[in-house]
Design a protein around this nucleic acid. Structure first.
Lengths: 301, 301
DNA sequence: CCAATTATTCTCTAAGTGAGTATAATATAT
DNA sequence: ATATATTATACTCACTTAGAGAATAATTGG
């Protein structure tokens, strides 16, 4: 019985995740009898071990597949969580490090255009995998899945399909984790991207997908923001999480008409150009509207 | 390590859940080593025990609170699942029975107007609970929470807040499960609604909330429908699940423009009035659009 | 003072949604 | 046979939302 945490914060390197070891594992710990509840158990040990106050915690998924850790007949139940915090809360102890999550998923960052590795590496290898299927209908099905997941053939990129993309690459043998234990020469070279132990990278993919979906209908972004911020800073955070750019005027309109923020009266001084008003999150909305939404003006075209 | 299933189907009594015992418990079973995965384990034992083929399975939540079962220091991890099936698949064995979920949550059915018990019983008792708070700001906060959850003071009813409503009633001591073990005379009489053992009713509330949310953006309703159906039958199912009526022309428009269904060419014969065309679900949409949506034309007013 | 830079406001258009009305096809009653 | 009830299906309209681009404002640095 293990608790695994995906702790997310914004750092200088962008949207980041707290890692241990050689930046190849998520922090995890046993669930102890002394803990009042699962969530409480997670909160106490993460805060104790990392000095991070966790603002928002959400259960992700419980895993127990037999060969999860590779050891046969040993059954470990892992309960994974998504937690949001602010990087400043760090007390940096031991071998813990923040890493941009795009280090592990370089194909997910579409903020400055589509990464070239998608067309140069991912697409041809997935194509080869699809063509390697025996029957004709299998080939078509594989191609269609790849096209939907990665937006090939003129389809639109859907930033929420993080897990589907990872699983597709895994199934195609293009992820190092998928070919562990088998002959190295037998499998094609993996796609770029830092790897993780066991299925931690898969759990991270689940967390990113959840967060990308959630910011559209719950005001959780603010857990990652400092107490006061400009609208552009807020926008950059949303863009970092979703991996794509949003239309600035429309973003402002959305935030303001939902009354998610209020002006502090101050403005920024340290920037070039016109100084921006500073805002703070209106915590009252959490009480006022349970289903307080935050939609993103993401283009469909 | 326990698996608990909320198995949902449409029966003559409306949206129904599979129960065991005196219709006061959800089916549950241990997770065995022989099972390949959690989901697989659940599927096999539910199908084995009830003769039901489970179409759709989704993990709900993992619980491990210390006093969950009332036995101290005994820590049981429960992983709960939502499963959808068709009632006809039944092979009816033993003490299993379908029960309308509104037997357990009578305040949740707003199809034919708001149930009178909401204004007659729930509202005054929640008001009394709020007024019983010590400080003034506590009273205001309790009143606001009740108003948001149940749509008092001219607010809108939000059908997705099933869990919030249950938890509010629980906190107010108006749910029998909340006052177990304490002096009976000390607590107010519980609100109407069948009870369940342990926290099963809470798990059921979680499942209903999840399903009411999900039918709006994923075509899961079809798991509950027979192979062919009329659009009105589909609409009635959606209404039964969400607990509120939808606008018929708009519902049709939504279903058709999303190309979720296709005509079979047949029409119904056994009804009064003009015969309706029969439709079947277009399984192709599951491949075509991963995020295939089913939105409901629910009124905001 | 002008260019560059960032912030903020406004407008236009297209699509989506809630609500109501009109027409079509059947059964049953008179 | 005709009217009426009943259910199915189609159409219309007003209003809101969302995507996109343009225009204006307030700074800093030459």
């Amino acid at each position: 019985m293990d608790l695994i945490a995906v702790v997310v914060a914004m750092t200088d390197q962008g949207p980041s995740v707290l890692t241990v070891g050689q930046a190849n594992a998520l922090p995890s710990g046993p669930f102890e009898l002394g803990h009042r509840s699962l969530q409480f158990g997670l909160r106490t040990w993460v805060e104790h071990q990392t000095g991070h106050q966790l603002g928002y915690i959400e259960q992700l998924y419980t895993f127990a597949d037999r060969d999860r850790t590779g050891e046969r007949e040993q059954r470990v139940i892992s309960i994974s969580y998504l937690a949001l915090t602010r990087a400043e809360h760090a007390a940096g102890s031991g071998k813990r490090a923040w890493r941009s999550w795009y280090d592990y998923f370089p194909w997910e960052d579409h903020r400055s255009d589509i990464p070239s590795m998608v067309a140069d590496i991912v697409q041809p290898r997935l194509r080869a995998w699809a063509d390697g299927a025996g029957q004709d209908h299998m080939r078509r099905e594989r191609r269609q899945r790849a096209a939907i997941a990665f937006g090939f053939d003129g389809r639109h990129w859907n930033e929420e399909l993080v897990l589907q993309r990872y699983e597709l690459l895994y199934e195609a043998g293009l992820i190092e984790e998928a070919t562990r234990g088998s002959e190295r020469s037998a499998s094609p070279p993996p796609v770029p991207g830092a790897t993780m132990i066991a299925d931690h990278r898969r759990i991270l993919a689940t967390a990113i997908a959840r967060l990308r979906s959630k910011i559209k209908y719950r005001p959780v972004v603010f857990e990652l923001m400092p107490p006061v911020f400009t609208l552009l800073q807020l926008q950059r955070t949303v863009e970092a999480l979703s991996g794509r750019l949003v239309h600035k005027p429309n973003f402002r309109r959305l935030i303001e008409q939902q009354e998610l923020v209020e002006e502090t009266g101050e403005t920024t001084a340290d920037t070039v150009g016109r100084p921006a008003k500073l805002f703070r999150f209106r915590h009252a909305v959490l009480d006022e509207r349970v289903a307080a939404g935050t939609k993103l003006p993401l283009s469909r075209a």
